[in-house]
Every structure is written in structure tokens, then in C-alpha cells.
């Protein structure tokens, strides 16, 4: 992407946001679509489906002929019962829903930390996503391209093109403990959508994740809290490091989903500097409890 195109897209995106956001936030009752869906239940697939349906269905996010990138966390060589990666059933359900909504192609990928061939396989995500018809792409150095991020602090970095080039991006993080940021949810999941020396970003982690979240700015975030990693994050290693929460949280406002997800760990937005920073920049709302929420058990 050329810089000029990029600036144009940013400008258009900004316009689009300013056009959409007020209606989404100010008049939630008008179309009766809630801002957030907090669904609890007994099957990851059913939870996912119910959460997206509560927000108006996948058709309100994905158009006919779209290339969609579903971006889970496939960072670690851990099996699903360790809850270090997104639940494969959640990913699979989203892929199915994208195709039902008319998507032309659904890409599932992540720039993983352990060997990608292992993480993709052992997380169960590769098989699940392929079964639903997705194109599962191993991260490759050919697909990392340095570009402007337009961030307050984060100006330029290698971006993973397979994520960036999609028409629509759906963020599907898993809720986990993390010893630096305390929790890793949707915003930190974007570290899997970039290349370069990511390990150095910890020095400015709060600024980095806020700018990255603003850059990727997904229209839909689906937080997997089916099984939550509560200690030894972000990869755990024993099922005893996890707790069953049997929850999926979804929303249009990624910051609101993030703030809601933090409560799974007993944290308030004020406890997490990256939430405070994002709220200061008015990138979304952290007072999610004041939004219209569809919270139910199925």
C-alpha cells in the first residue's frame, strides 16, 4: 500500500467512524441492537453464534464477496485444555458464519511465537478452521511489510499482510493472564498481526497495543472466555492454570469488549494502563457497563 493510499484510507476510515459511531452509541434503542453481547452457556460454538447473532448477525459485519481475516490467538504450542490459544470451536463457528454471510474467502492466521506449524496444529485451530472452509496461512517473512501505522507513539512497523489486506478483520482473542500487562485480550492479540522484533515492544507495551488496536480497528471483536488462563500466562502449561468460564463476549467497540473482558480477572479499566490510554484518546468506551448489553445464559 502506498503512503498516499494509506492516508486516504485513514481519512475515509475516520469519516466512516464518525458517521457510524454516534448512531451505534447514542441510539442503541432505535434498532434494538445491543453494543455488547455477554453470553454464557455450555458449548463454545453455540455461545459464539449467539453472541454474534445478538449483535445483529454476521451479515451486519461481513458483506457478500468479502475477504475476511479471522484473527485468533495461535501464539503458543499448547493444546486447547491449556487455554493459551483461542478455542478452535469458536474460530470454526466464526468462519462458518462468515461464509453464511456471503464471504468469498476467510483467512485464518497468526504470527505465532512457537513454531507455527506446531501451534497451528496442536491448538486444534488449523483443523477446525480448514473444516469450515477457511484458508489457514502459516506466517511467512514474505508477508511482513514495513508500513506506517499512524499511531501516536507507534509510527512504523512490519505488518502481516495476510491480516492487513483482508476486507474485514474479526479479532478472536482468548482471555489470558499476562505478567506484564496483567491480562492479554483483544488489543494485545495484534502483536500476532505484525512482524519484526516484537519482543522489544514490551518496553512500550501500553502505547504499542493502543496504536495497534487503532490501526487494525476491527469491526467485530469476539472474546473467547470459554476457558480462561488465570496464571502462568500467557501460555500456562497445565489445565490447572485455567478456569472454566464458559463465556463469549462480543462487540463492535473493541475497547468496550476489552474493558468487559478485564472483569473476568476482577480488573477494572483503571487497573490497566492500556485501557486508560485508549479511553483518553477516545478510541472507544471503557464504561461498557453503561452501554446496552445483551447478557444471557443459553
Amino acid at each position: 500500500m502506498k503512503r498516499r493510499d494509506f492516508m486516504r484510507d485513514i481519512a475515509l476510515g475516520g469519516l466512516a467512524l464518525s458517521a457510524v459511531r454516534p448512531s451505534a452509541f447514542s441510539f442503541p434503542a432505535a434498532d434494538k441492537t445491543p453494543d455488547l453481547a455477554w453470553i454464557e452457556g455450555e458449548s463454545p460454538a453455540a455461545l459464539t453464534r449467539a453472541a454474534v447473532d445478538a449483535l445483529g448477525g454476521m451479515k451486519s459485519f461481513v458483506g457478500r464477496g468479502d475477504v475476511v481475516c479471522v484473527k485468533p490467538n495461535i501464539g503458543w504450542d499448547r493444546t486447547p485444555e491449556m487455554a493459551a490459544c483461542t478455542n478452535p470451536e469458536v474460530v470454526k463457528t466464526l468462519v462458518e458464519m462468515c461464509f453464511e454471510a456471503g464471504a468469498k474467502e476467510v483467512v485464518v492466521t497468526d504470527h505465532s511465537t512457537n513454531q507455527a506449524a506446531r501451534t497451528f496444529l496442536r491448538s486444534g485451530i488449523q483443523a477446525a478452521a480448514k473444516q469450515a472452509g477457511a484458508k489457514v496461512l502459516l506466517p511467512s517473512s514474505f508477508r511482513m511489510k514495513k508500513m506506517g501505522l499512524g499511531g501516536e507513539w507507534f509510527k512504523e512497523w512490519e505488518v502481516f499482510l495476510d491480516v492487513h489486506e483482508a476486507d474485514k478483520i474479526i479479532n478472536v482473542p482468548v482471555a489470558k493472564h499476562h505478567s506484564l500487562t496483567r491480562v492479554t485480550l483483544g488489543m494485545k492479540n495484534w502483536l500476532g498481526a505484525i512482524g519484526g522484533a516484537r519482543n522489544q515492544l514490551h518496553q512500550k507495551i501500553h502505547e504499542a497495543v493502543v496504536d495497534l488496536a487503532r490501526f487494525f480497528n476491527p469491526p467485530l471483536t469476539v472474546l473467547d472466555a470459554w476457558r480462561v488462563l488465570v496464571r502462568n500466562g500467557p501460555q500456562g502449561g497445565r489445565p490447572s492454570d485455567t478456569e472454566m468460564r464458559k463465556t463469549v463476549v462480543a462487540g463492535r467497540d473493541w475497547l468496550a469488549v476489552e474493558a468487559a473482558g478485564a472483569t473476568l480477572f476482577g480488573l477494572k479499566p483503571g487497573d490497566l494502563p492500556f485501557l486508560v490510554l485508549a479511553a483518553e484518546r477516545k478510541l472507544g468506551r471503557v464504561d461498557w457497563e453503561k452501554m446496552s448489553i445483551e447478557k444471557r445464559k443459553i
Binding site: S179, L180, H202, Q203, I205, N232, Q235, G237, R238, D241
Partner: peptide, 15 residues
């Protein structure tokens, strides 16, 4: 400076 990258990657549990 903040970092903890080594701790994050340590694969044993407990780390």
C-alpha cells in the same frame, strides 16, 4: 525498563 519477555516464553509450568 519493563520487559519480562523471557518469563513470558518460559514453557514450564510453574515457570
Amino acid at each position: 525498563e519493563p520487559c519480562i519477555v523471557c518469563e513470558e516464553h518460559c514453557p514450564t509450568s510453574p515457570k
